[in-house]
Amino acid sequence: MKNNFKKIIALFIFALCIFVNNKADASFLSIKPSSDSLSKDEQFYVDVNLNTEGKIINGIEGSVSFPDNISFVRAEEGNSIVNLWVEKPALSDGSVKFSGIIPNGFSGVIDPFNPDNKLPGLIIRLIFETKKEGDCNISISKAITTLNDGLGTIDNITPTSAKISIQNISNPYIYKTSNDVAPELSASVVRDPNIENNKYVLIFDAKDKQTGIKEVLIKEGSRPWKKIESPYLLEDQSRHSIITVQATNYSGSSIAINIDALPYKLISFINIIILIFILVGLLFIIKKFYEKYK
């Protein structure tokens, strides 16, 4: 009995250690502001980085909250390790929400000059502007990652935050990321029974290595330019319009590609024969009418 009790206690401690350690080794997000002491009317950035703690992560979603003495300007995802956004970082209900995937997974950025030391990966750079003096707490309240295990196992992330203080001095400053690289864009028109009832949709992937993509526009034939997201249901389902897709980054550089229209089908030989029969028939009827009422 006494021995059994010892075994139970030992087993309990072992399980507890595994549980506690598993929590400690969960991947985590860090928030790094460009400065922790700022003036009013000053734009600054906050980098959200992922440290996987040796795990291979292929999905991340989260929400960044901030108080009302700063305002959100934009999110730059140009240097992000996230390759495809399920939800592009955007302001929603007072916080910046994001969700995306890293195909085949991510376990830390390798610096080839120091390959043994893996670095955290940038998820997003958020640009804010200070409004009122005082302390400001920027936090990641809800965030999860998924393991690259083929099962989508969820790995919860410990909440984290960063504190900055805003002085009562006005120092207007506009934050600008230098960008000398044009965006990349690939697009194609597809039909799939699982999207929009098998109608023609445009899918695209727009990337920019520095500031990120500001917007993607479409022009179908003579129709006006329109801001779109992928997948986009084409207005011209006949596909007889030339499609132009244009992606623009935050520094104003853009790239455009054209997708050819489908050619009009030539009238088939059988159709020509049928047409000839119809014409001959019509001529015969007209001739009959003409002879009758002459």
């Binding site: 991340i60 195909p103 393991l147």
Partner: peptide, 14 residues
Amino acid sequence: SLVDFSIMAFSWTG
């Protein structure tokens, strides 16, 4: 949800 996208990302071939 993200779980479905994660399952897809594991099998990604490009």
